[in-house]
Amino acid sequence: MATHQITLTVNGVKEHTQVSSNITLLTLLRERLGLTGTKNGCAAGECGACTVLIDGEPVNACMVLAVETDGAEIVTVEGLARDGELDALQAAFIEHTGVQCGFCTPGVLVSARALLNRSPDPDEDEIKDALRGNLCRCTGYVRIVEAVKAAARGGD
């Protein structure tokens, strides 16, 4: 089976690596680069736990081949905080108890970050629409929505 040399940027760090064709971006992140913040919940693009940004757009990392990300810029949950400062969403999720078991949290945060990037002041329906691909079994979503609202308000 063919392998491919790829170069990508992950959370601002350039990575050169050799990948076989059938390795997903999720496997690359978790098992090669040790970035385990991105979670594997279904490997089928249904649960959203592996959501990361590729060139600013959110994707399910389980639905992307690593080889496709040659030249791409990836941001994972580990890359949301910058210069030791939490992202407004991270702070809001702490403040508003948007977290319970924490397994869906990385994917939710990345989806929400993408939302706020494209729509800084979303209404509740917009928030729900943006997060409907992120399953959470603990929170009932109430505080997730509240936290995103709060982060948006604090973000302007």
Partner: peptide, 21 residues
């Protein structure tokens, strides 16, 4: 009070079993 585990869970640092190397 704020959850004691919230910070490590929002940064992706909280470790789950499949995360152990």
């Amino acid at each position: 009070v704020t959850r004691i585990d919230a910070l490590e869970k929002v940064t992706g640092e909280a470790q789950f079993a499949d995360d152990i190397q």
